[in-house]
Amino acid sequence: MTGGEIFVECLKAQGVTDIFGMPGGHLNPVYESLYKNREQISHYVVRHEGGAAFMADGYARSTGDVGVCLTIPGPGSTNASTGLGEAYTANSPVLLVTGQNSSHLAQKSPSKSFHGLDQQTFLSPITKHIEIVKTVDQIPEAVNRTFGAMRSGRPKPALIELATDALTTEVNLPIPARNNGLHPAANSMDLGQALDLIQKSKRPFILAGSGVNHSRATTELVKLAEYLNAPVAMTAMGKGCIPEDSPHSLGIFRSSITREAIEYSDLVIAIGTRFVYRETGNWTMKFKQPLLQIDADPTEISKEYPAQVGICAN
C-alpha cells in the first residue's frame, strides 16, 4: 500500500465516515485512496478551505466525534485556520489534515518552497495536538495518537501534516484499532464529598456547559435535575443539553431569572463549563454558596472559581 492508502485505512479504523476538503497536489495519494474507498468514506468538496473547517466543526458538534477536513499546505491551512480557531474556542474536535513538501526539504526555509509554511508554529495556539509525519512508517501511530488525544479530556482541534514522499512510498504496515481516548473516572473520595454536599443542599442549582453535549450526557443531566428537582441553566455552548421545554430548564445563563436562581440556591453544581467571560460578566459573578465542579479537564477545576469539591470525569 502507498502511504496515502495506509492513511485512509487508518481513518477508517478510527471510524471516519465523512471528510470535508479541497483536493490539491500535495494530497493526491490520499485522494486517490479516498476515491477507491468512496463507499466507506464520503468526501464533500468545498470552494474554500475555511468552509471545510467550518463544516468539520459542525459535524463534530452534531455527532460528538472528530470532524475531519483536508487542505493543501500553506494557503490551504491558513484559510482553514479561522474555522480551527472557532473550533478551539468552542471545544470542538476538528482534525485538519494537510500536506507538506517532500521531507528532504525540511531543513530549507519554508518560504522558499511551494506553499511553504511552518504550520506547526502557525497552528499550535489553536490546536491541542500536532503530528508532523515525514516518513510512511510514522503514519499509523501518528493517526492513532491524534485520535486518542482528541477523544481524551476537553475536545480541541488537532493537526496532522503529511510529507508528500511519505504518501507515495509503498510498504505494508499494521493498522491500529480505533483509539477511544482516555476517560477518567471519579474517585470514591471525591464522589463521597460531592454526595455529602448534595444531601445537605435544599436548593441546588445546575449550570451545564458544552461538556455535557460533548460527553453525550444529556439524558443523565435530565435525570439529575429531576432527582434533585433543581433548575438548570445552560451556557451558550451548552445549549441543547436539556430540552428547552423541560420544567427544569431556565434557558441560557446570564438572564435575570438565572441570576435570581443562583442567589436563591444553596449549592451550585457546574458541569462541563469553563466559566468564560460572557457567562460570568468578565468574572465579576461571585458564588456565596459551595461550588461542586465536574469537568473532563483537570486543569479547569477551581481555575476560575474555587470549588469546594472538584470531580474530574466525563
Results as ranks from 00 to 15, higher is better:
191 L>Y: 03
180 N>L: 15
211 G>H: 02
197 L>E: 03
219 T>M: 09
172 N>F: 12
206 I>W: 07
179 N>A: 14
200 K>L: 03
226 E>C: 04
184 P>L: 14
212 V>T: 04
205 F>M: 03
182 L>F: 15
170 E>P: 02
218 T>G: 04
170 E>A: 12
220 E>L: 13
209 G>R: 01
174 P>A: 05
203 R>Q: 08
208 A>Y: 06
218 T>C: 14
193 Q>W: 01
179 N>H: 12
213 N>V: 07
194 A>Y: 03
178 R>F: 12
198 I>K: 02
179 N>M: 12
186 A>T: 01
210 S>V: 09
183 H>A: 11
227 Y>C: 05
170 E>M: 03
189 M>A: 11
178 R>T: 08
206 I>H: 11
231 P>H: 07
183 H>V: 08
209 G>F: 03
180 N>H: 13
182 L>G: 07
202 K>Y: 05
185 A>D: 15
189 M>I: 11
174 P>M: 10
171 V>Q: 12
207 L>I: 09
205 F>G: 12
189 M>T: 14
217 A>W: 04
214 H>E: 08
218 T>Y: 05
222 V>Q: 15
213 N>Q: 05
186 A>P: 06
195 L>K: 12
188 S>M: 08
203 R>V: 02
224 L>I: 13
202 K>N: 13
178 R>P: 05
231 P>E: 06
195 L>V: 09
182 L>D: 11
188 S>E: 14
196 D>I: 01
197 L>R: 02
177 A>Y: 05
217 A>C: 04
225 A>P: 12
193 Q>R: 09
196 D>C: 01
186 A>M: 00
196 D>V: 00
183 H>P: 10
220 E>F: 06
229 N>D: 15
209 G>K: 04
223 K>M: 11
219 T>C: 06
214 H>S: 11
172 N>H: 15
210 S>W: 01
228 L>T: 13
202 K>G: 15
181 G>N: 06
205 F>K: 06
216 R>E: 15
191 L>P: 02
208 A>E: 08
182 L>H: 13
174 P>F: 10
219 T>F: 15
197 L>Q: 07
211 G>K: 06
221 L>D: 07
193 Q>I: 00
183 H>I: 13
204 P>L: 04
180 N>K: 14
174 P>Y: 11
217 A>H: 02
177 A>D: 13
196 D>Q: 03
176 P>A: 11
211 G>T: 08
227 Y>P: 00
177 A>W: 03
190 D>Y: 00
215 S>P: 06
206 I>R: 02
196 D>K: 01
193 Q>E: 11
214 H>P: 01
179 N>W: 10
191 L>G: 00
172 N>W: 06
205 F>N: 09
218 T>I: 08
177 A>K: 13
197 L>K: 02
182 L>E: 15
225 A>I: 11
179 N>V: 15
190 D>F: 02
175 I>Y: 07
202 K>P: 02
196 D>H: 01
195 L>Y: 09
187 N>I: 00
